[in-house]
Computed example of a mutant assay.
Amino acid sequence: MKVFVYGTLKPGECNYPFYCAGKVNETIEAYTYGKLFHLPSYGYPGMTIGNDKVRGVLLTFKDNSALIELDQLEDYDPGRPMIKNEYYREEILVYTLAGELIGKVWSYLMMPEKIEQLAGVFIASGWWTQQDY
């Protein structure tokens, strides 16, 4: 099971040890297309659909059970209306840094309305790290 992460779940960031360490078989630096924002009041990022490159890490988990914990962390419940979730989980296309298509993988996105509500600040570089914010 593969998940593209761009924020606190990346290796070296605060949530990786709790949600990913010991559960991940492989990590690959990768990118997707979207629009990345820093959420200043919360200290983490959100990504929307878009055309900019967003760099992150593709995590390959040992099994699908990790999605249960990740859904809880990201405040995503597939049974709720999308606007009531903080993030929503969707399959997106991901590429190696060399530009080769890896395929569709899970990622957590935010609705543009939620980004606006949380006063998101656009990150033109497409790369977020806690030490920069």
Rank of each mutant, 00 (worst) to 15 (best):
F61K: 07
C20T: 01
S65G: 00
V94W: 15
G22L: 11
K10D: 12
A124W: 01
M82W: 03
A98K: 14
E116V: 09
G46W: 01
K35D: 13
Y16T: 08
N15Y: 14
G12Y: 06
D77W: 06
K2W: 12
V57T: 14
G34T: 04
L36N: 02
L109S: 02
G43N: 13
K2M: 09
D63K: 03
G7I: 10
P78W: 07
T129E: 05
I83K: 13
F4Q: 14
Y108F: 14
S125R: 04
G22T: 10
N64Y: 02
I49R: 15
A119D: 12
V121K: 11
T27E: 13
K104H: 12
I92W: 15
Q72L: 08
L97F: 10
G12I: 04
E13M: 11
T129L: 00
Y87L: 10
K53D: 00
T60A: 05
Y33H: 10
M1W: 01
T32C: 15
T60M: 05
Y44E: 10
V94S: 13
M111C: 02
S41I: 01
D75M: 01
T48W: 10
T32M: 15
N51W: 00
I49C: 09
E91N: 10
G99M: 06
I102H: 10
T8Y: 10
E116F: 04
V94G: 14
D71W: 07
W106Q: 09
P78H: 06
N25G: 04
F18N: 05
T32P: 08
T48A: 09
G34M: 09
I102M: 13
T96D: 11
K84G: 00
L59R: 03
